[in-house]
């Protein structure tokens, strides 16, 4: 009973002191709000950049050209062999005839040259369009496929893929570092702001000690108060995330310049970001208060 009673009191005291020390609370809240807005924007940006990378990676395809003299059994054999390769996620077979139809449909010039070919004259090669799971290992996978019986050659845009790969690595690392740095700066700023506001309540803490409050029951209301400040401080950033991202997404119609650079669909993405922002606000508020009170408890 007693711990619950004291916890209840901590919550009541925390709310009370948020409002009685309103100007100081406002300082902490606005600090939390501003830094959380920056963190939220950084999160949105970095996750979207990650998403671009993912979409592009998923689009990379190895085209496997089959030798012209391979018959239907040979095709099945190649398919079975391909399925055995660990790194392959999807295999899409296209016969010579199918390819010819596709090409004829895609342009009238091609159609004009190809429509007179008989089935035997068709110079195209049957292909497998293969997508890989791990793009980092695409080179190994491609060489393995190339060595298989009945495979004429493979093509996956080697130089472009390599260039993308190294660019993505830099971008991923960069965004992670940026977000971590921003969160650290936020914590630092908020801890200092709360320290300043608690400094003015040194007297209150000394009176608590004087009347026999244990360390835990002194810290508790301050930590709860930090939590409340964190929650209040994350309201505006969350609204910005939800409405701002929606507007942004709709303005660009879900993609930037090309269908390859696709934005993340707002739902449920924005709710996850909001929850993350709220969690950062709460944790940082609590941590800040905890650190700040500790100083006055002579521990």
């Amino acid at each position: 009973m007693k711990p619950f009673r004291m916890f209840g009191r901590s919550i009541r005291d925390a709310f009370r002191s948020v409002f009685r020390n309103f100007s100081l609370s406002l300082a902490s809240i606005s600090c939390i709000t501003i830094t959380l807005i920056i963190v939220a924007i950084a999160l949105l940006a970095s996750l979207n950049v990650d998403n671009f990378a993912k979409v592009i990676k998923e689009d990379v395809t190895i085209v496997v050209f089959v030798d012209r003299d391979v018959d239907d059994d040979g095709i099945k054999k190649i398919e079975a062999n391909l399925k055995r390769i660990e790194n392959i996620s999807t295999i899409d077979y296209k016969s010579k005839a199918e390819l010819r139809k596709e090409m004829q449909a895609s342009s009238s010039i091609l159609d004009a040259t190809m429509k007179d070919w008989s089935e035997e004259e068709n110079p195209l090669k049957a292909t497998f369009q293969v997508k890989v799971k791990e793009i980092e290992q695409i080179e190994d996978t491609a060489t393995t496929i190339e060595k298989m019986d009945g495979v004429d050659s493979v093509n996956y845009g080697k130089t472009m893929v390599n260039r993308f790969l190294s660019a993505f690595k830099v971008i991923e690392k960069g965004t992670i570092i940026a977000v971590i740095l921003l969160v650290l700066v936020t914590v630092f700023l908020i801890v200092n702001t709360i320290k300043l506001t608690i400094f003015s309540r040194k007297r209150e803490i000394s009176i608590m000690r004087l009347v026999g409050a244990g360390n835990f029951s002194i810290k508790m209301p301050f930590v709860v108060e930090g939590m409340i400040l964190g929650i209040i401080g994350s309201i505006i950033p969350i609204l910005i995330v939800i409405y701002g991202y929606y507007a942004f997404y709709q303005h660009f119609d879900g993609q930037i310049y090309s269908p390859l650079i696709r934005l993340i669909v707002p739902e449920p993405f924005i709710y996850w970001i909001s929850l993350t922002v709220l969690a950062i606000g709460i944790v940082v508020g609590m941590l800040g208060s905890y650190q700040a009170v500790r100083k006055y408890l002579k521990i």
């Binding site: 711990p3 009673r5 020390n21 209150e204 000394s206 009176i207 009347v211 409050a213």
Partner: peptide, 21 residues
């Protein structure tokens, strides 16, 4: 005196009992 300036007389006295639960 060392009273809490933002608490009433009652709250100031009750404070000593509240912190011990």
């Amino acid at each position: 005196y060392r009273l809490l300036p933002k608490s009433t007389v009652y709250e100031n006295v009750a404070f000593a009992l509240e912190v011990i639960g």
